[in-house]
């Protein structure tokens, strides 16, 4: 199983077949509220990708070098959340200080991410599936890009929908969820290529 290509396989699986949003339905709240705007979706997508890739690695280290040696695996939920929150805060401060442009495009979404369950979910899957450090990094990156891909696709579809006549009761979150379901079915088509889990 552990061939040289394994990290890449996990990466592509995280983007397509095991897409964190479409397969696990995680990170829905910011997805539903931000997908309305294409530009904001790009910013949020980038922020999620970055934070996911880095926090997965950080949490892997904290888990492997701190929690496992002391037999405290059961504390991973709270520890992971603290690490994610602190990291996001720190990144926001740095971006705000360093670049106005980057802050406007990306930094403004960071507080939204602290409570994004997809981020915590990725760190928890990494533990359950027993990934190594390298694989975890690719898994985090892939999950982030997968989420990015899903929100981008949804934002594109919603742009078209603005001109469509939607039944009153389905407007807003309703139609978005229906479309997300259909998208999830479409992504299941990738399932034959590779699987993880």
């Amino acid at each position: 199983m552990e061939s040289n290509w394994y990290p890449l396989a996990v990466f592509f699986a995280a983007v397509f077949t095991n897409n964190i949003l479409l397969a696990n339905y995680l990170g829905m709240c910011s997805f539903l509220s931000i997908a309305k705007e294409l530009k904001a979706s790009v910013g949020l997508g980038m922020a999620v990708t970055f934070v996911m890739a880095v926090t997965t690695v950080l949490n892997w280290m904290v888990y492997t070098y701190l929690l496992v040696p002391f037999g405290l695996e059961y504390l991973r939920f709270i520890v992971f959340i603290i690490v994610i929150a602190a990291f996001v805060q720190l990144v926001e401060m740095i971006i705000e200080r360093v670049s106005d442009g980057l802050y406007a495009a990306l930094g403004i979404f960071l507080p939204l991410i602290t409570v994004n369950c997809a981020i915590l979910g990725t760190s928890l899957f990494m533990v359950i599936r027993d990934y190594s450090l390298i694989v975890s990094f690719f898994f985090g990156l892939g999950s982030g890009l997968g989420w990015f891909l899903a929100i981008l696709a949804m934002a594109g579809i919603l742009q078209k929908l603005k001109k469509a006549r939607i039944p009153k009761g389905l407007e807003g979150a309703g139609i978005t969820l229906v479309i997300t379901g259909i998208m999830a079915l479409a992504f299941m088509g990738f399932a034959g290529i590779l699987m993880i889990g």
Partner: peptide, 13 residues
């Protein structure tokens, strides 16, 4: 352990 993680991160903040 949990406290030291929290304290370390708080100190960082």
């Amino acid at each position: 352990i949990v406290s030291s993680v929290a304290v370390f991160l708080a100190l960082l903040m």
